[in-house]
Design a binder for these strands. Structure first.
Length: 490
RNA sequence: GGAGCUAUCGUCUAACGGUUAGGACAGCGCCCUUUCAAGGCGCUUGUACGGGUUCGAAUCCCGUUAGCUCUACCA
């Protein structure tokens, strides 16, 4: 029995990677890193209707973009092959293992064939509900009416149920939530394998395969969403029936939207791809998510200033521990993400930003020389919350204004400002220093203030009143383009 | 209906049972200023409710209310 920490993220391929899933994965990832353990990505695709290759790809790409790399799981380089020794990491490919475990349970009398049809179950459910009781298979007024003691063989179609303990409590020792007690009689004999033809064992359900896989993959810490708390008392007796020792369970609180409902598309972005397309940095997403329901303590202290809120991955990993995670859910506030993203952009190197900006830029971006890109990035990195905004604030470089608002023309392109613009048009020295001197001279000669000339130039050159500082705006456009755009105003 | 979880500014959160209930985001105001930002300074707003325990409760206990999760041959 090794003491190696192994965590896993086990999403089902539903067509998108949800931000809440990423947060859960992040905690599992941080915990593995913190303890020099291993992190597994496993695909839970026992619901064959929803699981497609494309949907699995979406999960892999989302995880990769988020920077949550896995030690075991699908090999992103080679489709269909696996990283790690406990594969395959798709449940649909592990049927043989599940079936052999179910056979084991049969042999020990801990599982049984159930011939109750959906129709008869539905009828009993209604009967229970009519008398104000919830329906539980082989519990309450349904007790003794099922197949538990009938010892059915597989000669007829059947599903498979797990014989849950009767009476007493099931205790969950949760690393985050503490001890939680569930009365056994609030549960029932649940289905572990779906309906199947005679002689067969059907496709196992989630609660069964998750237990078998977590043990087979030597998962030491099951870190998952709060929505699984109520599943755990079903799973605990199954671990025991299979002779397994229990992993450590840690249920992390949910992430809610502004209306305190589970976060979804209705709240704006919910899938990780949307955050990427909005121009957020993966690190900003990680930091923001990490700080929901968890407060990192650096040297035993929580952040006491804005600067201390901005933490590196290394600091996150170093500070991480399960005990500090909150037990209450938290609302996802995209404003905080915007703020963190902006801070991170400001702190980023120009080189990193140049590269990160590529997907948001027109193709001409790639052909610009390094000095120009450096200038472009350095004069916009403090004025953009996202990469997308950064790209937008540089759009004037390749998009000459087509229309000019009358109001702006009247206000800024006055005769005196235009005469200064005419002088600018005659400037010869377009080196940064030459331009600076030239502008100073023009301001002096025309007796106008920099802010007036700057605004007039912004309108003339970009069609708007917002652009990088005016020297940089001129330099980015370049002598030739500036002259071209000034033509109609002189 | 049953089982479970949760409850501090609008949001994220801090607070050995003793603090003027602290910080961050957002909002607002002022300063700086070449537009927009960034930066600086300041302000507004909070312990869900009701009972206990205690010299003393945001903190411990009970109840209420509200929200969420599970209650599937979904995961």
């Amino acid at each position: 029995m090794s003491s190696l920490v192994v965590t896993r993220f086990a999403p089902s391929p539903t067509g998108m990677l949800h931000i809440g899933g990423v947060r859960t994965a992040l905690f599992a990832w941080l915990f593995a890193k913190k303890n020099s353990g291993r992190f597994i990505l496993r695909i839970e695709d026992t619901d064959t209707d929803r699981s497609t290759e494309d949907n699995i790809r979406i999960i892999e790409e989302g995880m990769l973009w988020s920077g949550l790399d896995w030690d075991e799981g699908p090999d992103p380089q080679h489709l269909g092959s696996w990283l790690g020794d406990h594969g395959p990491y798709r449940q649909i490919l592990r049927m043989d293992i599940y079936k052999s475990k179910i056979t084991e349970l049969f042999d020990q009398g801990k599982a049984y064939r159930c011939r109750c049809t959906k129709e008869s179950l539905e009828e009993r459910r209604k009967e229970s509900e009519r008398s104000g009781k919830p329906f539980q298979y082989n519990r309450g007024m349904d007790f003794g009416r099922g197949c538990r003691d009938k010892h059915h063989d597989d000669s007829l179609p059947s599903s498979v149920r797990f014989a849950m303990p009767l009476g007493g409590d099931i205790i969950l020792e949760d690393a985050i939530k503490g001890m939680i007690k569930f009365p056994s009689d609030s549960l029932d004999d649940w289905i572990i394998a779906r309906w199947s033809e005679p002689g067969e064992i059907g496709v196992p359900t989630y609660n069964f395969s998750v237990v078998v896989d977590d043990v087979a993959m030597k998962v030491s810490h099951v870190i998952r969403g709060d929505d699984h708390v109520a599943n755990t008392p079903k799973q605990i007796p199954l671990f025991e029936a299979l002779g397994y020792t229990l992993p450590v369970f840690a249920h992390v609180p949910m992430i809610l939207g502004k209306d305190k409902q589970k976060l979804s598309k209705r709240h704006g972005a919910a899938s990780i791809t949307e955050f990427k397309d909005l121009g957020f940095l993966a690190q900003a997403v990680r930091l923001t998510l990490a700080k929901l329901s968890w407060t990192p303590k650096i040297d035993g202290k929580v952040a006491e200033s804005a600067e201390e809120e901005i933490l590196s991955d290394a600091q996150l990993i170093d500070a991480f521990n399960l005990e500090d995670i909150q037990t209450s859910p938290s609302v996802f506030d995209i404003d905080k993400l915007y703020w963190i993203n902006q801070k991170l952009i400001m702190n980023s190197t120009n080189e990193f930003l140049m590269k990160s900006l590529e997907p948001f830029m027109p193709s001409v971006w790639q052909t610009q020389d390094i000095a120009w890109k450096n200038l472009a990035v350095s004069c916009t990195k403090e004025r953009s919350r996202t990469l997308k905004e950064m790209a937008q604030s540089l759009a004037f470089c390749w998009e000459a204004p087509q229309i000019f608002e009358e109001k702006l023309i009247i206000k800024h392109l006055t005769e005196s400002n235009r005469s200064a613009i005419r002088s600018l048009n005659l400037l010869e020295d377009w080196t940064p220093q030459g331009l600076r001197d030239g502008l100073d001279r023009i301001l002096f000669e025309h007796k106008i203030a920099l802010k007036d000339l700057a605004q007039a130039l912004r309108v003339a050159l970009t069609g708007g009143t917002i652009s990088p500082p005016i020297h940089e705006t001129l330099l980015l456009l370049g002598e030739e383009e500036v002259r071209r755009r000034l033509l109609r105003w002189i």
